[in-house]
Design a protein around this nucleic acid. Structure first.
Length: 126
RNA sequence: GCAGCGAACCGGCUUGCCGCUGGUCCGUCAUGUCCCUUGCGGGUGUGGCGGGCGAGAGGAAAGUCCGGGCAACACAGGACAUCCCGCUUCCUAACAGGAAGAGGUCCGCAAGGGUCAGUCAGUGCAGAAGAAAAGAACCGCCCCCUCCGAGGGGUAAGGGUGAGAAGGUGAGGCAAGAGCUCACCAGGCCGGCAGCGAUGUCGGUGCUGUGCACUCCGGGAGUUGAAAGUUCAUGUAUACCGGCGAAGCUCCGGCUCUUGGCGCAAGCGGGAGCUGAAGAGAGAGGGCUGUCCGUCCGAGCCGGAGGGUAGAACGAUAGAGGACAGCGGCGACGCUGCCCGUAGAGAAAUGGCAAGCACCCCGCCGGAGGCUUCGGUCUCGGACGGGCAUACAGAACCCGGCUUACAGGUUCGCUGCUCUU
């Protein structure tokens, strides 16, 4: 993995604005699913990719398990985010966990790889 | 040694690579309605990029059950209602918490543990059962009368019912009985003594039914909750519809004009107009804990429908803070000294992967010892392989508690049994 892209995930690469999140889920978004990960994404006016992760309280009552999954999602995205390149303009993505069970990190890694490849393909098709 | 009881404590460690949050320092590039300088330039603030350094979840961070700080709304006063607490003394900022103590009851051989509570004054209720649920007579027992059917009366020792039957047991006593009398026991009341007190103890007193609710007594409570709240930035709409109000009005004051009244006159009285936020009244609506009285504010308010913003800073991390020592106290705790510096996010950081190790568990191999019904079984030590790198669980304004969850482990004190000396 000797990409020129640094494997960082700073604040500017995360989706923090409430307004942007409302726009993402408001309409015009697309989604792909590789169970149990579901990615909702939409091109944006901003430059660069911004991501967020979300785990429902319905699936995990305890905060420790929700944190575990959110960390797995962020980590696996961070290590593979160059799969989305090259990219024109900006992109907002939300990763949602749709399962009530935990998975080992290596499986989450493969699911994330699948998702990022499919997002990249759908963007280049257009 | 085994089993147990009670306290207190810990809640993995090391290394490598890649990351996150907020600091700090250095370099560099921008930038300012800032400061110094004639100027070159320098300082300082802010921002971007790169690099270095050090910091970064818990004993329960959890449940959100109590108590407080803090904040906003408020803050003449009174009455009523509602809610909470309830053995005693103390600790504390406070508590429904803690410490020490007192009483009943239950569990345990014990160390210990669980649980209960103001009121015995008043009112109400207590299904079924039962004669009767508190001014008790069904059966029974006894007396009287007797027309031998019954009737009148006494009686709570016995029967059965019930959670509870006139405080319990025994003796005396009696026609039979009964605190009727006595002894002991449980409780109440009165007095003495001890104790700050709950209470204990001694003496007196025949005073004595159970459960629940209300009442009563004493003490306490304003509401909301950091999405509180303060400031700045951005942006919009004083749009529109419906309802109510202020203005208007009344009184009062001032000025001007006027005058069929009064007065010698100054003037008084009447009328009209103007005027008065800084005179009074009346005022929609609102505040004053839940209601009422009352009181204060008051020129805009209430409802519908709709529009805009959703960024930043403060709050906000030094606090009833912790460690150690000394002193006081049985103790909770307090005082004094000295030292330490310890997360601060905001779609929410504190992580991911790999390697190694302590401890623990499982399997297996053979060795020593004890018991043996010769099948085995127990203890100790060792090698190898595997599991596990851990349970419960993630700060969200901050503290003190309580409750609940929890793999594994450490220390101290105590109890019972057993062994050795």
């Amino acid at each position: 993995m000797d990409s020129l892209v640094p494997h960082t995930l700073g604040k500017e690469e995360r989706l923090c604005s409430r307004k942007a999140i409302d726009e993402l889920f408001g309409g015009g978004h697309k989604s792909v699913t590789a169970y149990p990960i579901r990615a909702v994404y939409m091109p944006s006016q901003e430059e660069g990719v911004r991501v967020m992760v979300s785990v429902s309280k319905r699936h995990f009552k305890r905060a420790v398990k929700r944190n575990r999954i959110k960390r797995q999602l962020r980590e696996t995205y961070r290590l593979q985010k160059e799969l989305l390149l090259p990219l024109d303009g900006g992109l907002d993505i939300a990763f949602l966990w749709t399962s009530p069970e935990l998975l080992p990190t290596e499986k989450v890694f493969l699911k994330m790889k699948n998702i990022l490849q499919r997002i990249s393909e759908s963007l280049t098709d257009q």
